[in-house]
Design a protein around this nucleic acid. Structure first.
Length: 569
RNA sequence: GGGCCCGUAGCUCAACGGUCAGAGCAGGGCGCUCAUAACGCCUCGGCUGGGGGUUCGAAUCCCUCCGGGCCUACCA
C-alpha cells in the first residue's frame, strides 16, 4: 500500500464552471483518486476554490454584495455541484481561509529571507472614478494597430496584437467606462524566479515521463527570450492575503495583497490544514513535509494547460525557494481544452453546458463517462450532442446496463433471485477468465499511467467480453437440456456484474453502487486474484434484480438540448 | 512576430522506426431471443493533409507548404 497526494487545479470562485473546466482537472483527478483508493492505497485528494483577485471583487460588486459574503456563497454552490458530480475530495477548501493567509505570509517571509524577493516600483494605470488600479485587460480603448474600438489593454481581440495599456487610444475603464485614468507609481514585491531558473530547469529535465504538454510549456517559459522572468506577486487590491503583516521585512505595503497566483497553489497545502481543522484528518504534515513522514508520498497534480506555468515554475520556485522540506510534485497531468459543438465554451455568452445545467438534465454518471472517455489528453476535444447521445446510449445503456439487466432477469426467471448452484466451469469459462485477466492488466496499466481514454476503452472492452461470453454460453438455450451448465454460466455472469462494479466505480460511482447494491454485496476488494473475484458470490447468495441502470437519451431530448445550450444563457 | 501541439476510415480516436495501419460508432449482411428494439458474428470502408528527403524499411525522423488549435508572463 502506497500513499498518494492528489490535487486538482482549484476552480476560480467567479461563477459556475462548465464541462470543459470539469474535465480539465477535477474529474480526472477524481478518477485517479478513486482508482487508487479502490486498489487499497492511502489517498489524500484535495481541492478548493480560488477566491482572490480582481474578477472576484468585481463580481461581488456587481451582485451588490461584500466580497467575503459573495465568495462564501459561491463556495457553497461549487461544493454542492462537486458533490453532485461525485467528486470525492477529502476536503474542498478555500484559498481565503485563515490557514492559507498564514501559510502564504510564511512563504513570503522564507523567500525574503532567502533573498528571493525584490521590491520593484512600477507605473500602473489607476482609475480615479473606480478608486482602484486596473489590470491591463480591464482597460479598453481603440487599438493603435487596427482601429478596433474595444481593444483590451493587454491585447487587441480584433487583430490579436499584443498591447501595452499606455498604447491604447482613448483608454477607458472596462469596469465603469471612466476615462479619468492616470499612470501612478506603485511598489510591488517580485519573486526572483530568474535566480532559480537553472534549478527549475534541471528539475523539469529530470521529469522524462511527464506529458509533453506539461514539459513543453515549462521549457518554453524557461527558455523563451531572456529566460524565466521574475514575477510580481502582489497587487493593489483589498481582497486577498495582506502583504503587510507583523514581522514582514518590508514596509509601506498597506492596502496590497498577494497575487492570486502566489497564494492559490499554497492553498494546496493550506487545504490539508483545513482538512485537519475540519476534523477529517489528524496529521497534514505527513502529507506535505518530507521531514514529517511525507517522504514516501507520491504527489500528482491535475490541471488544464493554462495552469501549467504556475505549477511547473512559480509554485516550485516558491517551494524550493523556501528552503524548507515541503513535498514537491512528482507528476503533472495536464489537459487540453474541451470545445463545444464547433466553438469554445463561453461563460459570458452562456454557450455550452454548465455543471448545474448538466446535473439538471442527466445524472452525473452519464457526464462522467462521456467526459472521461473523451478527455482532451492529446489534443483539444469537442463535445457534440450527437456524440454524447451515441456514446452514452451505446456504452452505458446497451453494453453495460443491458448486460446487468439480461443476466439478473434471466436468473430471476429460471433460478430465482439468488446465485444458482450446480455445474462447473468448462473451457469457455476458462477462456473468458484468461481474456479478462489480460484485459484487466491492460486496464490497470492505463489507469496507473493516467491514460484516461485508453483506460475507458479497455473498461468498455471488458464489459463487451461479458456479452460475448453470455452469447456463446447461451444459458437460455442450455437450460432446457443441461440446467447445471446454465446455472454455472449465470453464476459466473452474476459475478461479472460485481467485477464490473469494482472496475467501473472510478468512472461511474453511482451505477457501480447500484450494481453492487443489487447483488447484496459490500466487498469492493480489487480483483488482484481474478479467479477468486469471479467466484466471490457463492451459490445461494441472494440478490435483487435492479432497475434499469441507464436510460437512453432520445432524439427529441438531444434536439431540445442542442437548441437550449447554443448560447445566451 | 516567436514557440508549441494537432492533422490517420463518414465520425471519435489507437498504432517502442519494423507482420497486412487498428478499435468504437455509423453503414451493409447473418445469427440469437435472456435482455433497455438490447446482444453476438461477419463485412464495407484509408495514396495516414500536400510535396520533397533520410533509411533495408516512415503514420512515426528531417525540410517545406496547407489547414486547425493553444501559449506568449497584469484574467485567473
Amino acid at each position: 500500500m502506497a500513499r498518494y497526494l492528489i490535487t486538482s487545479a482549484i476552480p476560480y470562485i467567479n461563477g459556475i464552471k462548465h464541462l470543459g473546466n470539469l474535465i480539465g482537472s477535477q474529474l480526472p483527478a477524481d478518477l485517479h483518486a478513486r482508482y487508487l483508493r479502490g486498489r487499497g492505497h492511502e489517498v489524500l485528494f484535495l481541492c478548493a476554490t480560488d477566491e482572490h483577485g480582481t474578477p472576484a471583487e468585481l463580481a461581488a460588486a456587481r451582485a451588490g454584495r461584500p466580497v467575503a459574503e459573495y465568495c462564501a456563497e459561491m463556495h457553497a454552490v461549487q461544493a454542492r455541484l462537486s458533490q453532485g458530480f461525485r467528486l470525492s475530495f477529502d476536503h474542498f477548501g478555500r484559498s481565503s481561509s485563515p490557514e492559507n493567509h498564514r501559510l502564504t505570509q510564511h512563504f513570503a517571509l522564507r523567500l525574503a529571507a532567502a533573498g528571493l524577493i525584490s521590491e520593484v516600483t512600477e507605473r500602473q494605470m489607476y482609475s480615479v472614478a473606480d478608486g482602484r488600479f486596473l489590470p491591463d485587460r480591464y482597460i479598453e480603448g481603440t487599438c493603435p494597430n487596427c482601429g478596433f474600438t474595444d481593444a483590451r489593454g493587454d491585447q487587441c481581440d480584433n487583430c490579436t496584437k499584443q498591447l501595452d495599456p499606455g498604447e491604447l487610444i482613448n483608454p477607458r475603464s472596462a469596469i465603469s467606462g471612466a476615462t479619468d485614468l492616470e499612470l501612478r507609481a506603485t511598489r510591488h514585491l517580485s519573486l526572483r524566479q530568474s535566480a532559480m531558473r537553472d534549478r527549475l530547469a534541471a528539475w523539469i529535465d529530470g521529469k522524462t515521463g511527464w506529458p509533453i504538454l506539461t514539459t513543453s510549456i515549462a521549457r518554453k517559459w524557461l527558455n523563451d527570450g531572456d529566460g524565466l522572468q521574475d514575477r510580481g506577486i502582489t497587487r493593489d487590491l483589498a481582497w486577498g492575503v495582506p502583504v503587510q503583516f507583523p514581522g514582514a521585512p518590508w514596509t509601506g505595503m498597506e492596502g496590497k495583497v498577494f497575487y492570486v497566483w502566489f497564494d492559490a497553489p499554497i492553498e494546496y497545502i493550506a487545504c490539508a490544514q483545513e482538512w485537519v481543522a475540519a476534523g477529517k484528518g489528524r496529521d497534514w504534515e505527513r502529507w506535505w513535509r518530507t521531514d514529517r513522514g511525507a517522504g514516501d508520498v507520491t504527489y500528482i497534480q491535475f490541471m488544464g494547460k493554462d495552469n501549467v506555468p504556475f505549477h511547473t515554475l512559480s509554485f516550485p520556485a516558491t517551494i524550493l525557494g523556501s528552503g524548507e522540506p515541503w513535498k514537491l510534485v512528482d507528476y503533472i497531468k495536464s489537459f487540453n481544452y474541451l470545445n463545444y459543438d464547433g466553438g469554445q465554451f463561453s461563460t459570458s455568452r452562456g454557450r455550452g453546458v454548465f455543471m448545474d445545467q448538466a446535473l439538471a438534465i442527466l445524472p452525473a454518471d452519464y457526464w462522467r463517462w462521456w467526459l472521461l472517455s473523451h478527455a482532451p489528453e492529446n489534443a483539444d476535444a469537442e463535445f457534440t450532442w450527437e456524440n454524447f447521445q451515441a456514446a452514452v446510449n451505446k456504452d452505458l445503456a446497451d453494453v453495460l446496463g443491458n448486460l446487468v439487466s439480461r443476466v439478473t432477469k434471466f436468473c430471476r426467471a429460471k433460478f430465482g433471485e439468488s446465485v444458482p448452484e450446480g455445474g462447473t466451469w468448462g473451457p469457455r469459462e476458462a477462456t473468458l477468465a484468461a481474456d479478462l485477466g489480460q484485459r484487466l492488466d491492460a486496464f490497470e496499466g492505463h489507469m496507473d499511467a493516467i491514460e484516461i481514454r485508453k483506460a475507458a476503452a479497455e473498461l468498455r472492452a471488458i464489459w463487451v467480453a461479458g456479452n460475448e461470453y453470455l452469447q456463446a454460453a447461451a444459458p437460455w438455450t442450455v437450460v432446457r437440456t443441461d440446467p447445471a451448465a446454465a446455472a454455472a454460466a449465470v453464476r459466473l455472469a452474476l459475478n461479472l456484474i460485481r467485477l464490473y462494479a469494482i472496475l467501473a466505480r472510478p468512472f461511474i460511482p453511482d451505477a457501480a453502487a447500484a450494481m453492487m447494491g443489487a447483488l447484496g454485496c459490500e466487498d469492493w476488494a480489487w480483483p488482484d486474484d481474478l479467479g477468486a473475484a469471479l467466484t466471490r458470490l457463492p451459490p445461494g447468495h441472494p440478490f435483487a434484480t435492479p432497475d434499469v441502470l441507464f436510460r437512453k437519451i432520445t432524439d427529441e431530448e438531444r434536439a431540445d438540448w442542442q437548441v437550449r445550450f447554443a448560447g445566451r444563457r
